[in-house]
Write a protein that binds this DNA or RNA. Structure first.
Lengths: 108, 108
DNA sequence: CAGTATCCATTGGGATACTG
DNA sequence: CAGTATCCCAATGGATACTG
């Protein structure tokens, strides 16, 4: 096997690339929380029970890099930062809703 | 905090329970492979590039426990085992297809 | 408020060899 | 063929303290 061609991203199939983006433990919960409206950092932290600061930061950063959310900072004191879904992220809304419905029907 | 009430499954929200079932690195690929028809173990292993025996076993077992796939063994020599989607698992088909489409449109 | 920075335990997951 | 059994490294993720 050629070492050169085994760049990790090259031999991944679509579904796995998708999971890199929204398969994280908290990504879907974050998207779900943002569907109704944009939210501040602390709001998200409160809305998602069990998430740690560290994970919320990491997931948001990852989602921002992947064009799922936007981050807007205001130079206030104390600082204000708003997170919002991009159009690309918003297209996931029906999918997540369907998943959610599937879960309600089939889990427990 | 009460130790008794912190059973891991109790304080998880829906989306996270769903991800336990189909958020595994390979679960969706397996479901995707089973959409067209039932498959034998080795067939799945060949259809999903990069998966290891160990992971295929684990994911199939997990999915069986969660009622996503059925496992049927035939007492032949050598052994034959077929995996198939349950109706519950098949309901995930449109969702996974939508996810797949989203990925094609928005990744790369 | 909106993060960073650390430390550390748990889990995920690959490679390989073996079995009924 | 359809798995088990090990070994072992890497990634995940929680708790906590600190900062502009």
């Amino acid at each position: 096997m050629d070492k050169e061609n085994i760049e990790k991203s090259e031999n991944k199939c679509e579904l796995q690339k998708i999971l890199d983006i929204i398969g994280g433990k908290w990504s879907m919960s974050i998207i779900y929380a943002l569907i109704s409206d944009k939210k501040r950092f602390k709001e998200l932290e409160r809305m998602i029970p069990g998430i740690s600061t560290r994970m919320l930061v990491k997931e948001l950063k990852n989602m921002e890099e992947n064009g799922i959310v936007t981050r807007t900072a205001f130079a206030t004191v104390p600082p204000t930062v708003e997170y919002n879904l991009t159009p690309k992220g918003r297209k996931l809304e029906p999918i997540i809703n369907e998943l959610y419905k599937w879960g309600l029907e089939h889990i427990n």
